[in-house]
Simulated assay, not measured.
Amino acid sequence: MTRVVALVRMRIGAYVGLQRVWPPLIAALALVSVAHAGGVAPPNQAYAFSAALLFGVFGWQTKLVLDTEPDEQRLLAKIGVGSPGRELAAGLLAALVMVLPVVVLGVVAPLLVGAVEISGGWPEWAAWAAFGGWLHVLSATCGLAVGALASRPVIAGAGWSVMIVLAVPVLVLVLGSRQSQTPRWLVPQLFAASRIEGAADLGSAGVITVHALGWAALLLAGYAALRRSRL
């Protein structure tokens, strides 16, 4: 476990040290500004739109983290931690750590600028902040899976890799906003959260969570399978 933690720290240090951290953060700030520039909105709608917009940033961040390390160094890291599974987990953990600031940004920013319409006191504010956190964590988990599947350790061709990182978020925005049920379920249901009015609709929240986590798990399983035959 100590070796895995050390590898996570090394990969985060390389990602930050090479200044790859800044473009996604700037893009996230711009998208959050766009998401909440239209005035005050109900918190369920504001957070659903923000989480859907940031989906692509989460995938981009993950790809950049996993692409930072040269192939030869990744092979040495696999030997150093003792197994391919630990090396793979270290990469995903490093990517997860780096997407968390964007999750916090997506949750806190609309509260700070007054872009969400919350009429109650602190309990209601806390409840909606938890709602936003839940939705952005789901978006980050699914984005992480997409970014992993598009990373250089899996897809050597830059064109295909970029197409995955760009096309899947577009599908989330396009299909997720459709009324037709069949194509909508091909992507995480981030927009569906805009119809959740409160604690009374926990069933819908559960369905959205199970679907999103299952979707991400399927992509991560594909990533793990493809990594077995690569460095």
Rank of each mutant, 00 (worst) to 15 (best):
F131Y: 15
L88V: 02
G120W: 10
R230W: 01
A14S: 14
K63P: 06
A150E: 12
M10A: 15
S194C: 08
I196N: 05
K63E: 12
R20L: 15
G106K: 10
A28H: 01
A148N: 03
F55A: 03
L218A: 14
Y15I: 10
G13E: 11
H211K: 05
V57G: 05
R86C: 10
V165W: 13
A167F: 04
G222D: 06
F55K: 11
F55E: 04
A150R: 08
I196Q: 01
L218S: 09
A156Y: 00
P183C: 14
G159Q: 08
V187R: 03
I118P: 08
V16H: 02
D201Y: 08
R184S: 11
R195A: 06
F191L: 15
A148R: 00
L100V: 15
Y47R: 07
V16S: 03
G133I: 11
G133E: 11
S33H: 11
Q45W: 04
V65Y: 00
A46S: 12
V207S: 14
V65K: 03
L166G: 05
W134T: 13
T182R: 12
V104T: 14
A192K: 05
R195P: 00
A199Y: 01
S33C: 12
V116C: 00
G159L: 10
L88A: 04
V32W: 02
R20D: 13
A212R: 06
A90S: 15
G17V: 15
A77V: 06
Q61W: 01
A217M: 05
W215M: 03
L149D: 05
H136R: 13
P101S: 11
T209G: 00
W122K: 05
